[in-house]
Amino acid sequence: MAGQVARQPVVEGGARTPVGTVHVVDPHPLNWLFITWNTMEEPVRTDERGNIVGACMEDSWWEGSTLVVKVREGVRFQDGEPLTARSIKRSFEEVQKWRAPHPPGTYLNFHPDTRVVCPDDYTVRFEFPEPDGLALAKFRGFHIASTRFWEEEGFGYRKYGTGEGHW
């Protein structure tokens, strides 16, 4: 076994400057999903042990059957657009159009009667008809995209005319 690498120190403010290039070969059958997860935003991600942790979601709590999400400030998409509560609402509404958008199955769907409200730029209220115990797990497959993504590409919507089976 070869030696270990010293991690780059964190500079003041917690930011790090990207350096270097890494070439990855990933023959896993879910490579397409891993690329998606490494290039798009989601409210949550998983830590090393597989536990859900916040990503563009900074915090969340339940108020009855409503899940309140505080959006992390300062996040930007690759095209420079700031990620706000409205980005999350737009992404939610885009995917809710389809009956079976998720490739792994409809168990990742949110209730079709869910209402999403943005009281301010960094708060989203998911008003579910009933509590959704799997909401945070579903958030892992809830991809948040910029306005330009939805207007120009979507998940192949323009090409295929549908989002069924591929978000």
Partner: peptide, 20 residues
């Protein structure tokens, strides 16, 4: 050996990956 990669239980996550 010059890459610091953190394995994740559920997925392939590369956000923490660094190179020396």
């Amino acid at each position: 050996r010059h890459v610091d990669f953190t394995g994740h239980a559920a997925t392939l996550e590369l956000a923490e990956t660094e190179v020396g």
